[in-house]
């Protein structure tokens, strides 16, 4: 039995499936979802609150398109940091206000020596390069090499989609 069966029942799934393309943009959006899934509005609100409390839902809100807000520069900065120092330094880099996410990930040697990833956004490349320089100062001698990968195009941005049962079964029989 997998974790999702333990924590998402049929009504949870139905609510998430009904909202994953977006909340209805109407005065009473949860009532519209309730009608769609055949539950009461009170129950839909309670289920969503419970999923927020369990962390199944991280938050309810907007994901903006950075490009359309003028943050046309997005640089994924990557760093080769000493293994015994990467966690302490990652915590410091992660709280910088211009870093939206910061992770430790595996290296792929010899081509990819970088184990620390920090995403920086800005209005110009110069602004993002300045942010990279500030991260470098913090990392100091613990960093052996680094690179920056500017994004040039969003190819897809839909977020996570729950699989329909039918498709899941089809893909299992592939």
């Amino acid at each position: 039995m997998s974790g999702r069966e333990r924590s998402l029942d049929a009504l949870d799934r139905a609510i998430l499936e009904a909202t994953q393309a977006g909340l209805p943009i109407v005065p009473e959006p949860y009532k519209a979802i309730a009608e769609h899934v055949g539950a009461s509005e009170v129950e839909v609100l309670a289920r969503l609150q419970a999923m927020l409390d369990r962390g199944v839902v991280r938050r309810i809100g907007f994901a903006p398109n950075h490009y359309k807000l003028g943050l046309t520069c997005n640089g994924m900065t990557v760093w080769d940091v000493d293994d015994d120092k990467v966690d302490a330094l990652g915590e410091i880099v992660g709280v910088l206000d211009f870093v939206t996410h910061c992770y430790r990930r595996p290296r792929h040697l010899p081509d990819w020596p970088y184990n620390l990833f920090a995403m920086a956004h800005g209005r110009t490349r110069a602004e993002v390069l300045d942010k990279r320089a500030r991260i470098l100062e913090l990392l100091g001698a613990a960093c052996r090499s680094s690179d920056i990968l500017f994004s040039t195009e969003i190819l897809k941005k839909t977020g996570m989609r729950l699989a329909r049962r039918a498709r899941e079964e089809a893909s299992c029989s592939d």
Binding site: S7, R54, V57, G61, A63, P64, K68, T158, M160
Partner: peptide, 16 residues
């Protein structure tokens, strides 16, 4: 300008 509006799932908290 807004690419998504609604619940954001954290798959790690339901086995994903």
């Amino acid at each position: 300008v807004v690419t998504r509006f609604g619940p954001f799932l954290n798959a790690e908290n339901f086995g994903g």
